[in-house]
Nucleic acid binder design. Structure first.
Lengths: 337, 337
DNA sequence: CCAACAAAGGCATACGTATGCAGCCACAGG
DNA sequence: CCTGTGGCTGCATACGTATGCCTTTGTTGG
């Protein structure tokens, strides 16, 4: 395991160490012949640049860090598969750009133990996941003060810190609710947490409200129930809705998981989907097409989102000031509506 | 963004740079009083160790790299949620141990383009994912020759390279098939690719065979169909089985996805689950409890698996030679059997 | 035939940290 | 009062690379 350094290959190629460095990095001041000798020697000794030394010298890491915020739910939380696809796209885009990716799962409730540390190990940060937005706002301010570059997956609002990329949640909520109205539904319930702590969900809720207003309908507060993005809460919320005795012929759910839970509650109560109640979810998770009936939902392109996140961050690192960007959310109609 | 170095905090604390280094790393040769001054100064200037410099000096990175092998299927493959839970557990265990985690998604078919170890970016490797085992065997040999430490998620076999951790696939296959036999099934089909390229699946198949042998039954080759871990292939395999006209009253599927596809084919053919045909899957993915009827399956504890992987790798790094380990696979009985 | 110039590569050094070694000081034992 | 010992800290240096600057060599024009 004797370390192969640039000196070794310099000796083999009969040149100096700096020449090796220049040759390998494509510096044009090196003659073609010398370059060839250097490459041959490097190949022969299986030489690889020591990134620690290289980064130290160049004062850059060529590494991005991904901070994933998990819901602080106790025990085994079911992580959203949406983010996994995103993760795949992110790693790929990083690899293509020659960046490494450092990943860290964060408990939002606990200490945000990375902040400065990761800011130093990486050239830029990608912030991802669900959780109370207000809770980590102070951290974002901190990052901005440090001059740390970061992009965030979330809901677009004016005057936000850093660059935010997110789905067109409002548009998705509009599309879903318009669809239900077109199908003749008039009493549309909404299940999902809608407050400033979860801006994505708030936007989807706003779409629900606006689509009804367009059609001359009134979004009935009595048909709203809170639920975070879990099946259990969706189930509980739907049961509560049923128990309250309110009349409704459709539910727009803030996520597929919630919708799946709601459908379970409906089935138990003997309500048929979609004849009695139509259900629409959000995300288009793999599980969405497995329910019976298959779930109508609003699809977000996770892989595209991941790619955009990385590209936006790289833009920032290059000194550009990329604008926030809303990615299309597309209605996928299946059997549940 | 002027860089804060250990010299800065040395100046502020009125000591030398080496003393700062020692104080921060907990070297007992530093007096408590000095240590306190150093910590105060570091806190005041928000100093964080430069890991590039530190790693370079110490010739160790305190970083692990995770190589995730994706199936080389074209387009948007549906990544197994099982691995996401595992990923979460891995990152957590790394954080606890003070290690960072680099992640890279690899196309098994393409070049293995990351050389974290060569580039001194990571102290050890975790290899994960599905794919043809035989295809990356040469790479493993390469790693061993370089003296690289790695652990692998896969199937345990005698004489394997590195340390392998995996589920008790044989035991899981046995449990699943015994369960079907106890339920009175006598003609049990198997859907799944069973060859040396996918050793996990081969083991599960062997469980299917052995359980029948125990009961004096014969595993009928006519009831076997190949399918990789996708719903589509499960669907196609089950259709093929039905078309062949073979009599069977149960199917043991190599994964939940395959089972879900198979159940779809059965439903289309008018076969009732579980009355006509019992179905058992493998993995206990979240989707497994959503099917109708809910899927009986063999659960693997992904989070535990991730933890064990990291701990095993850390053992290796400490110079121990950990044994391969098979983690329990537990039958979860639901409505499909 | 000499000066001017370009091309190519070597020399020296800096990046920030960790650690072997030596030095200093205080205190205790003789 | 001198020497030995141990606790603490400073000095010097090395990790491997990248780059500014200078030297060398070869070429060209006057």
């Amino acid at each position: 395991m004797a370390r192969v350094t640039s000196f070794d290959i310099a000796a083999l190629a009969g040149v100096s160490q700096p020449t090796v460095s220049r040759a390998l990095s494509g510096n044009p001041a090196v003659s073609a012949e010398t370059r060839a000798r250097v490459f041959a020697a490097a190949e022969a000794l299986n030489y690889k640049v020591d990134k620690n030394a290289s980064n130290l010298r160049r004062q850059a890491t060529r590494t991005l860090a991904l901070l994933f915020f998990e819901d602080p739910a106790p025990g085994e939380t079911q992580i959203n598969p949406f983010f996994l696809s995103m993760l795949g796209a992110i790693t790929k885009r990083c690899a293509v750009a020659g960046y490494d990716l450092l990943i860290s799962f964060q408990q939002l409730s606990g200490n945000w133990h990375v902040d400065y540390e990761d800011a130093r190990r990486a050239d830029g940060l990608i912030l991802l996941g669900y959780g109370n937005y207000l809770e980590y706002l102070p951290r974002l301010e901190q990052l901005v003060q440090q001059g740390t570059h970061f992009v965030r997956w979330g809901s677009l609002r004016p005057g936000q810190l850093g660059t935010t990329i997110g789905s067109d949640n409002l548009g998705g909520g509009l599309a879903a609710t318009r669809h239900l109205i077109e199908r003749g539904r008039r009493r549309i319930a909404f299940i999902g947490t809608a407050n400033e702590g979860a801006p994505e969900f708030l936007d989807r809720c706003e779409g629900w409200r606006a689509a009804q207003a367009e059609a001359g309908l009134v979004a009935d507060p009595a048909l709203m129930r809170a639920a975070n993005s879990s099946e259990e809460e969706g189930y509980a919320a739907a049961r509560d809705l049923l128990a309250a005795g309110a009349a409704f012929d459709a539910i727009f759910c803030v996520s597929d998981l919630v919708a799946i839970g709601a459908m379970r509650a409906l089935a138990e109560a003997g309500r048929h989907v979609p004849d009695d109640v139509a259900v629409v979810g959000f995300d288009d998770q793999p599980a969405a097409s497995l329910t019976s009936p298959p779930l109508t939902t609003v699809a977000q392109d996770a892989r595209h989102a991941g790619t955009v996140l990385v590209e936006t961050l790289l833009d920032r690192l290059r000194g550009e000031i990329p604008s926030p960007q809303a990615l299309p959310a597309r209605l996928v109609v299946r059997g549940s509506s």
